[in-house]
Lab assay of single mutants.
Amino acid sequence: QIFVKTLTGKTITLEVEPSDTIENVKAKIQDKEGIPPDQQRLIFAGKQLEDGRTLSDYNIQKESTLHLVL
C-alpha cells in the first residue's frame, strides 16, 4: 500500500502493486475521493509523475507517500 497526502492534509491509503501505472493510481484516487484523474497531479520526491509510467519506474515502494496537487 502507499499513502497519498492531499493539500488539505488528508491522507488516503491505496492498495497498489509496483506494476501499477500512475494512471491506474489516479483512477483509484477517483474511486475513493471522486476527483477526476485529469485534475490530479501526483508528486513524489519533488517530481511530477507521468501517467504512462509505473510506480516501480519511480522507485515508489510500499509505505511511500505521494503528494496530490489539484
Rank of each mutant, 00 (worst) to 15 (best):
Q1W: 14
I2M: 05
I2F: 03
F3D: 03
V4G: 01
K5D: 05
K5R: 12
T6K: 05
T8L: 12
T8V: 08
G9H: 05
K10M: 10
T11K: 07
T11Q: 07
I12H: 03
T13C: 11
T13D: 04
T13E: 07
E15L: 13
V16H: 05
V16C: 12
E17W: 09
E17M: 12
E17L: 11
P18D: 09
P18Q: 08
P18N: 07
S19C: 12
S19D: 12
D20F: 06
D20T: 10
D20K: 02
D20P: 01
I22M: 04
I22G: 02
E23D: 08
E23S: 12
E23H: 12
N24D: 13
V25C: 06
V25E: 00
K26D: 00
K26T: 02
K26Q: 02
A27T: 11
K28Y: 07
K28Q: 10
K28A: 07
I29G: 00
Q30L: 09
Q30V: 04
Q30Y: 15
D31S: 12
K32A: 12
E33V: 13
E33T: 14
G34F: 04
G34Y: 03
G34M: 05
G34C: 07
P36H: 11
P36I: 05
P37N: 07
D38W: 13
Q39W: 10
Q40W: 06
R41C: 15
R41K: 11
L42Q: 00
L42F: 03
L42M: 03
I43G: 03
I43M: 13
F44M: 05
F44V: 04
F44R: 03
A45W: 09
A45F: 09
G46M: 04
G46I: 02
G46T: 04
K47Y: 09
K47E: 14
L49P: 01
L49W: 01
L49T: 03
E50G: 04
E50R: 07
E50Q: 09
E50D: 09
D51I: 05
D51Y: 05
D51K: 04
R53G: 07
R53A: 08
T54P: 05
T54Q: 08
L55F: 03
L55I: 10
L55Y: 01
L55H: 00
S56A: 14
D57G: 03
D57E: 11
D57Y: 13
D57N: 05
Y58S: 03
Y58W: 02
N59T: 05
I60C: 03
Q61H: 11
Q61D: 09
Q61N: 11
Q61V: 12
Q61Y: 08
K62C: 12
E63M: 10
E63S: 09
E63K: 07
S64I: 05
S64Y: 08
T65V: 13
L66V: 09
L66G: 02
H67I: 13
H67K: 07
H67G: 06
L68Y: 02
L68S: 01
V69E: 11
L70I: 15
L70F: 09
L70W: 09
